[in-house]
Structures are given as C-alpha cells and as structure tokens.
C-alpha cells in the first residue's frame, strides 16, 4: 500500500514539478509570478485536442504543432501585453498575468464549452506495468519518464548552452548583461516561450491523467505553486523535488488520513514552509555583500 501510494503520487507530483518549473523559469528572470501559466497550458492542450479530434492529425505531429503554438503564445503574450506596460512594477505585471488568465479561461469556455473531454493519449491509463511488485498504470509510468527527461534537458540547457547561461546572467544583473551585448528583451521573450512550452507538456500530461475542461488547471496551478514554495522559488532542482514531494505527501495523506481533505494538504504545506524556512528547501541564494 505504501509503495503504491508513493508511486502514484509521484506521477501527479511530476506534473506539478513541470508546471512549477514553468512558473519558476519566469519568476527567476523577471520576478513575475505568472498566474496565467495554467490557462496557457490549458489552451495549448485544447489545441492539441482540436488538432487530433477535428483535424485528425497524428499524435506526434499534433504534439509538435502544439509546442510551436505554446512557444508563440508565451512569446507573444510577453511582447504584446507585458512589454507594453509603462514603467511597470512587479505587482502591475502580475495583475496583467491575472487578467490574461481570465481572458484565456473565458476564451476556452466560449470556444470549447464546459464539457469534460478526454485527450487521446497513445498510452493507456488502464493497462499496467508491474515494477518490483508495484502495480503502475502505463500513463503514470510514462508521465514520470517524460517529466524526468524534460527536466534533464532543461538542466543541460541552463548549464551548458550560451543562451541558457545568458538567461541566468540576465536574471542576475540586467545592466551588466546589456553591457555584454546580450539582448535582454529578446531573452525575456525567449524565457516566456520556453516556460509556456514546458507548461504545455504539463497540461497535456495532466489532461491525460484526468480530464480536459476549461477549469482543469485551477487545482494543479495552485498545487504547483505550493511545490515551488516548498522547494524554493529560485531553485530549479528544488522546484522539481518540491513537486514530487508534494505529490507523494498529498497521496499519503489521502491514503492514510482523509481522502476528503487530500487537496488541502498542499496549502498546509505552503503555510508550514513559509513559517519554518521561507526560502524553501533547496534554494541557496547568494546574499549580496555590501
């Protein structure tokens, strides 16, 4: 029972991790919390759904086209809304993302209606794998694998590519980055594009695990926010670990204590974490010496 709960919690946690990573990537570069993250992912997932359902595009092509759409959505949101803000404060920008969230949600409700649909994922959620005596549905297994691979790619990107390092540099010191000839505005759009794409992956996985409807991301978004707080808002590995932990904690609580209060645990975790260690589990932050 214990092992079983951990494994299925891990699959949900992997989705939280991805969505949280998408948020943290933006938070790190611009200090903005993107509340539209969930809805951007939801719209992207609907695009994948529409492509497959109405236009009969094969799954892999639908995924690639969805990625392109997500990249465009993220970059254009930054370009069209955020960059136009005049002398923006962080709070103002956050409010803009909230507004965008509502626009997207309204749009999805109008275009696709409130019906619950299911995303046609090529991996079954009924068939199971048997791993070391634990039963695991195929979709759970592949969710974990896909998330891990994507996280590893992100790690390599930020560590070893020139653009990845430039993104970190821009986040740490914009003035110096400009002096080095880094186009900081371009970097910002790029950040939104990447984040939106990571979010789209999370959205598709969440839809595959559950259902697809315009409000499907409300809960996961708050949970992933909790994971980010748990792991440390500024640390990518911390966020990934935080997501996995939250998924497991939640599942264990649901299994052993109370199923009705399962969803509340995430918020208890936020409160507890902010009281005990506000910087999060793994965030090591360099404090500027005077």
């Amino acid at each position: 029972m214990l092992g079983q709960l951990i494994v299925s919690g891990l699959a949900v946690g992997a989705c939280y991790s991805l969505l949280a990573l998408a948020m943290v990537i933006i938070y790190k570069t611009s200090d903005v919390l993107n509340f539209a993250q969930g809805e951007m992912a939801m719209i992207s997932t609907y695009v994948a759904f529409t492509l497959m359902e109405s236009h009969h595009v094969p799954f892999q092509w639908a995924v690639i086209l969805t990625f392109l759409f997500a990249i465009l959505l993220g970059a254009s949101f930054e370009f069209v809304f955020l960059r136009q803000a005049k002398e923006p404060t962080v709070l103002g920008l956050i409010i803009i993302t909230l507004g965008f969230e509502m626009i997207l949600m309204g749009f999805a409700g109008w275009k696709w209606g409130p019906d619950q649909r299911s995303l046609d994922f090529p991996v079954s959620n009924i068939e199971t794998y048997n791993l070391f005596g634990l039963v695991m549905s195929k979709i759970n297994f592949w969710t974990i694998v896909i998330s891990l691979v994507l996280m590893f790619i992100l790690f390599l990107f930020f560590r070893y590519t020139k653009v990845g390092v430039a993104m970190r540099a821009t986040q740490q010191n914009q003035l110096a980055a400009r002096v080095m000839g880094i186009r900081t505005k371009w970097i910002l759009s790029f950040t939104w594009a990447i984040s939106s794409m990571v979010g789209a992956v999370a959205g598709m996985l969440i839809a595959a695990l559950g259902v697809l409807d315009p409000t499907m991301m409300m809960d996961p978004l708050l949970k992933s926010f909790a994971s980010a707080v748990l792991g440390g808002m500024t640390s990518l590995p911390g966020t990934a670990v935080g997501g996995a932990m939250l998924g497991i904690i939640e599942n264990l609580f649901g299994g052993y204590v109370s199923l009705a209060f399962k969803s509340v645990v995430a918020f208890a975790v936020i409160v507890l974490m902010l009281c005990i260690k506000p910087s999060g589990l793994l965030a090591k932050h360099y404090v500027k010496k005077v």
Binding site: R168, Q172, N173, L175, A176, A177, Y286
Partner: peptide
C-alpha cells in the same frame, strides 16, 4: 566596466 563591478553573482 560598470561602476561597482556588477559581476553575475551566481554564475
């Protein structure tokens, strides 16, 4: 070379 050094602290 900016005043006050302005290196990227976490790189």
């Amino acid at each position: 070379v900016p005043e006050g050094r302005e290196v990227f602290p976490e790189l």
